[in-house]
Design a protein around this nucleic acid. Structure first.
Length: 495
RNA sequence: GCUCGAUUGGUGUAGUCCGGCCCAUCAUCUCGCCCUUUCGAGGCGAGGACCCGGGUUCGAAUCCCGGAUCGAGCACCA
């Protein structure tokens, strides 16, 4: 009698691994743009598993469509940088499909020679009828020799796009229509649509399709586990059929479901690319875009994204998550190190006089409320009278509190027509607490944020008592977290 | 239409293989309260779920049958 211990699983589920060899994972984006937030799931999951099982993971650029999803030249480098940012290190290996076209050709030829593939000269539309009727294409019975001749013609440019395609022989009676004699390589007019990588350009006009390229490459790289979206389930089945022709063993395969983020509408990489070109967005790192570039720019911690995806784990369920969850993860990481600062939006100027109580020489408060080791921030005041700024909205808040309000960490004041005076240093009444700045200890600053899906620059005054490094994330008290992008320029992260 | 796949609180997730330890886990969320000179963080408490219908069984979130719903694929896209 064995007592079964049920322990709650935390993090990623266990994988079937062969103890004899270290597993190899891969993530294969199309470099038709930098990475989107959605891509980060594939990177996090695959790299985490590689780490967990002491394996490797390969970053592979599946850049084999020069017409509909043309690769973006800059994306190759950008993606590698983003991967490094997200995982904290470079991918263990980088493979570019367009560098390996001739390898794919060799396997295509081998498959033709074995009678496992044939050149089909039916148009896509014509073939659709055969697929539907479960009948063989008239080209299916050609000998391997004849197919090889036609294949050479494809390579020599004797066919135009759509006139010939290499199909993997499966079985036209297969219940799943997607699997019936699926296309492996097709012709693209690379004169008209050259590959953006100069070394490739118009060099090839016969290009593998995803199922073929990916299937061959996974085997060549010794990939042991494929973890990808469930939209690629049929791809697994197609590739399994291809592996049977070659006598290869298909890797362990797992899937994740679709993810919808409430706040993001439907963005496709190609759609974003178009909008950026048209000037609708300022660039790939526009705050409104669900790209890694945008999240990185705003100051998200890569660790937060990792935790988010690990928590969602690996299920085939279609899920719909909210940015709030990601924010919650991020706050946990950044809060402890984020310096507190006052930023007054739409500042209203008030003169603080000594009508009731005198103004002290200085103002001092902690940089972080719980973390004393971060020290304090201090403002020196001139004697007699100083100029302070509060938010317009907060002035209204004072009006509904008999013109009284509490300046955070400082004093209760009474306001009388742009003149204010300290009525108490201790919180004497339950007054609303607001943030504020003093003229000599603050500077004009801009806060970039998104309002109603528009980019807005909010003018304000930022406390200048402590030096904030450019690129670091601070908490603007009562507003939210923001990153100092430049001197006197902040970009809003989240609240 | 055909072929896959999924279905646990508002949102995610654990448990489902090997039925009892599950009047169902954890996180997020919402609402209270506490602490705090932030609308931040923290603490405490509360709220809220096994898609439906049958069956098997002493016992079903878990096994079987049927249905519903959602999603994906059926591209010379990835």
């Amino acid at each position: 009698m064995e007592k079964k211990i049920k322990e709650k699983r935390k993090g990623l589920p266990e994988l079937k691994v062969n103890p004899e060899k270290n597993p190899i994972f891969r993530f294969a984006p199309n470099p038709n743009g930098p990475l989107s937030f959605g891509h980060s799931r594939g990177i996090v999951i695959n790299s985490e598993y590689a780490k967990k099982y002491n394996g490797k993971w390969i970053l592979r650029f599946d850049d084999t469509d020069t017409v509909r999803k043309p690769p973006l030249k800059e994306a190759y480098d950008l993606i590698q940088q983003e991967v490094e940012w997200l995982t904290g290190k470079k991918a263990d290996k980088v493979v570019i499909a367009s560098d390996r076209i001739e390898t794919y050709y060799r396997y295509a030829e081998e498959l033709i020679s074995q009678g496992g593939a044939y050149v089909c000269t039916l148009s896509a539309e014509e073939f659709r009828v055969f697929r539907k009727e479960k009948t063989n294409s008239p080209d299916r019975n050609r000998t391997p020799e004849d197919n090889l001749k036609l294949w050479k013609k494809m390579l020599n440019g004797e066919f135009s796009p759509g006139e010939a395609v290499l199909r993997v022989k499966t079985d036209m009676k297969l219940p799943n229509p997607a699997l019936r004699d699926w296309p492996a390589l097709r012709i693209q007019d690379t004169q008209k649509n050259p590959h953006p990588r100069e070394e490739i350009n118009s060099k090839y006009q016969v290009w593998p399709l995803l199922d073929f390229q990916s299937g061959i490459e996974d085997h060549l790289q010794g990939v042991t586990h494929i973890i990808r979206g469930k939209d690629l389930m049929d791809s697994t089945r197609k590739q399994t059929l291809l592996y049977e022709h070659f006598g290869w063993e298909y890797p362990e395969t797992l899937y994740w479901g679709r993810v919808k983020i409430h706040e993001f509408g439907g963005f496709s990489t190609s759609g974003m690319r178009k909008s950026i070109d048209e000037g609708v967005f300022s660039g790939w790192d526009d705050s409104r875009l669900p790209t890694l570039a945008s999240m990185r720019r705003r100051g998200f911690s890569p660790k937060a994204l990792q935790n988010f995806w690990i928590e969602l784990a690996l299920t085939q369920k279609d899920i719909s998550a909210s940015m709030e969850t990601i924010h919650a993860h991020n706050v946990k990481i950044i809060d402890n190190t984020s310096k507190r600062l006052f930023f007054v939006k739409n500042p209203i100027k008030l003169t603080l006089t000594e009508k009731i109580l005198n103004i002290p020489q200085e103002f001092k408060t902690r940089i972080h409320p719980e973390n004393d080791s971060m020290g304090s921030r201090k403002w020196d005041f001139k004697k007699g009278e100083i100029t302070i700024y509060i938010e317009k909205e907060d002035l209204e808040l004072a009006y509904i509190n008999s013109n009284k309000i509490r300046l955070k960490d400082f004093a209760d004041i009474e306001i009388d027509n742009c003149q204010a005076s300290i009525i108490s240093f201790n919180p004497s009444e339950k007054l609303p607490i607001i943030h504020w700045v003093e003229r000599e200890n603050s500077a004009e600053a801009l806060l970039e944020t998104v309002i109603n899906n528009n980019l807005k620059l909010i003018h304000g005054r930022l406390e200048s008592s402590i030096k904030i490094e450019i690129g670091s994330v601070v908490q603007l008290e009562r507003i939210g977290y923001a990153k100092l992008e430049d001197k006197n320029k902040l970009i809003f992260l989240h609240d």
